[in-house]
């Protein structure tokens, strides 16, 4: 019975990460009708950026909380710049190309980032230990043990989801973003600076990836060059299941996927190696049943 709390916490943690990633996919799709598949690898890049920042901060003799703040800032700044750069130099020039070309392009950008980390990061092929920056320890409720850092991370993740949601729905920038998403031409006529909104949107979406990368690194204490690929596939899946372009759908999709994985692990421990197989089978069934996602009816192709 003591395992239930453990599974619950683990599922919530994964769901938060997946939800954050899926939210990024949704933001990009909502604004540009683009699946930016390199999103997962931008996340990896953020985590590695954070790791370097921790090393540097440690070498400078900064205290642990400061190291944490520096790492977080570096991860988010790095992903923001890379995200905006990808949108400006690679995605924008291709925005009238067939969707398949765009999908392939962003997949290849992701491959390039992934391989660059593997090849050029010192000892990049092997997993890297990520230092523990959050308070260790935890507490028991009944038979279940809860890690303090996990609780902090889940709350932080949920808060960041809320913050992004607020930015999109209540800030002036969010309004401009939604206007571009709704109708690019009209938005342009209304005086919205298209050339600035798009990179900023991609920066915002990528910051969530940087944040998710840090959460991942701090929770698992280990990062590797290829962690982004599966996260991208899962995040994309979650975004699709929720219905592309629908933020709530993406978040729900993220927790749903984590829930499915956790359920398989909890119910059939001997089959835990197959947890992703089960999750993907269920997702394929789900997408067959609702071909445009659970919540939204918005097609991914313009007619």
């Amino acid at each position: 019975m003591g395992m239930i709390g453990q599974h619950l916490l683990n599922g919530l943690m994964q769901g938060t990460i997946y939800g954050l990633v899926a939210m990024g996919f949704t933001i990009f799709f909502g604004v540009m009708n683009v699946i930016k598949f390199s999103h997962g690898d931008v996340l990896t890049l953020g985590a590695f950026g954070g790791l370097v920042a921790v090393w540097a901060a440690n070498a400078l003799g900064l205290s642990v909380p400061l190291q944490f703040i520096v790492a977080l800032c570096v991860a988010m700044a790095l992903t923001a710049v890379v995200g905006a750069g990808i949108s400006h130099f690679l995605i924008m020039p291709l925005r009238n190309a067939p969707p398949l070309n765009m999908l392939l392009m962003t997949m290849m950008v992701g491959t390039a980032i992934r391989e660059a980390i593997r090849l050029f990061f010192p000892n990049g092929t092997n997993p890297q230990r990520f230092p523990e920056l959050l308070p260790a320890g935890g507490f028991n409720i009944g038979p279940s043990f809860f890690r303090t850092d996990a609780i902090i991370l889940i709350i932080a993740g949920a808060a960041s989801i809320g913050a992004v949601y607020w930015i999109i729905n209540h800030s002036k920038f969010g309004l401009a973003m939604r206007a571009v998403a709704e109708d690019t031409e009209t938005a342009r006529v209304m005086g919205i600076n298209f050339g600035r909104i798009i990179p900023l949107t991609f920066a915002l979406g990528s910051i969530t990836a940087g944040f998710a990368g840090m959460i991942y690194a701090l929770y698992y204490s280990e990062i590797n060059y290829s962690m982004g690929l599966l996260l991208a596939v899962i995040g994309f899946t979650a975004a699709i299941v929720g219905g592309l372009g629908n933020i709530w759908g993406a978040i729900i999709g993220g927790y749903l996927f984590a829930g499915l994985q956790t359920f398989v692990v909890a119910a059939m421990p001997s089959m835990s190696d197959y947890k992703n197989v089960f999750a993907f089978v269920l997702i394929i069934v789900l997408i067959t049943w609702r071909p445009t996602g659970l919540l939204a009816e918005r097609g991914s192709e313009r007619v």
Binding site: P99, I240, L244, V277, F280, T288, P291, S300, E301
Partner: peptide, 26 residues
């Protein structure tokens, strides 16, 4: 075949992608 027929565009890309990843994990 059923998901491939019922889905289009990006949704369709997902089904084969999920299958491709699943194949390896399995």
């Amino acid at each position: 075949i059923l998901p491939v027929l019922r889905t289009r565009g990006h949704y369709g890309a997902l089904t084969t992608m999920a299958f491709g990843v699943m194949f390896n994990v399995f």
